[in-house]
Design a protein around this nucleic acid. Structure first.
Length: 248
DNA sequence: CGCATGGCCCTTA
DNA sequence: TTAAGGGCCATGC
């Protein structure tokens, strides 16, 4: 008696004609326009699994995932608007096969709003591994879905943009297109300012936080470290969360 | 204040 | 199994 749903399911799978079977296992792929040029994007029933720029998409996909690929008639719902607007929060992603650490890192990176940046160390703190800063870099370097997980919004603590899977130049272009004032970030960094505080709200932010951008110049105070801002009586912004020791 | 240098931790070969 | 190395960071001249 094969009443076991798993067994009957397997039997059904085995009975499927090869074409339908391939259909189920294979990922689909399409070419789509993006801010940095044309992309090849692979996706499954679970969501987008892989984003690739330049040549060699199929080889790279096979090497990394070892799954068959079939062309798709159209991109998955929501992909084009997500690429166009840089708002990717709702788009389903297929991150199966990644380690827990890497998934956590990608999820954290995904919460950075368009037009803002956060340091690698911020991601590390958010995933509960404050000292795994380099590992965060490694994980983002292997981000299978750049742009959709906006790893270009993760920058170095010293104000430099840092490296990127599509190259540092592309990272800069993307950030500028999203409205990040990189010149200002660098100018502040030159003065060793990495945090901005408002003496009307008593709050200290990362410089690109949308709250920080609205601080009236006379009320604005720059700080080199969070400790110094705190010593001056400021508390970390609850939006950009420059400190992770506050309850989540 | 710019640069070098350990340190740290996860992944891969 | 292990060792090497990476999209970094804080320190110490």
């Amino acid at each position: 008696m094969t009443q076991d749903p798993l067994l009957t399911g397997l039997a059904a799978l085995a009975a499927e004609p090869p074409e339908a079977l391939l259909d189920r296992i294979a990922a689909r792929w399409v070419r789509v326009p993006a801010p940095i040029g044309e992309l090849a994007v692979a996706f499954t029933d679970h969501g987008v699994a892989y984003v690739h720029a330049g040549e060699g998409f199929a080889e790279a996909y096979r090497k990394r995932f070892g799954r068959p690929l079939l062309p798709a008639a159209r991109p998955p719902a929501g992909l084009l608007p997500a690429l166009r607007t840089g708002r990717t929060a709702g788009l389903p992603l297929d991150l199966r096969g990644m380690s827990d650490f890497q998934r956590d890192v990608l999820e954290a990176a995904r919460t950075i709003p368009r037009g803002e940046v956060r340091p690698y160390s911020w991601i590390a703190a958010r995933v509960g591994r404050p000292r795994a800063v380099r590992a965060v870099g490694t994980a983002l370097g292997r981000n299978p879905v750049p742009l959709l997980v906006p790893c270009h919004r993760v920058t170095r603590s010293d104000g430099a943009v840092g490296d990127y899977v599509f190259g540092a130049a592309a990272k800069e272009r993307l950030l500028l297109a999203e409205g990040v004032d990189l010149d200002r970030v660098r100018a502040l960094a030159d003065e060793r300012v990495f945090y901005l505080a408002s003496d009307t709200t008593g709050v200290v932010c990362f410089p690109t936080c949308h709250n920080a951008r609205r601080i009236t110049p006379v009320h604005r105070h720059g700080f080199r470290s969070l400790a110094q801002a705190r010593a001056a009586g400021y508390r970390p912004c609850r939006t950009c969360r420059p400190a992770q020791d506050v309850a989540v």
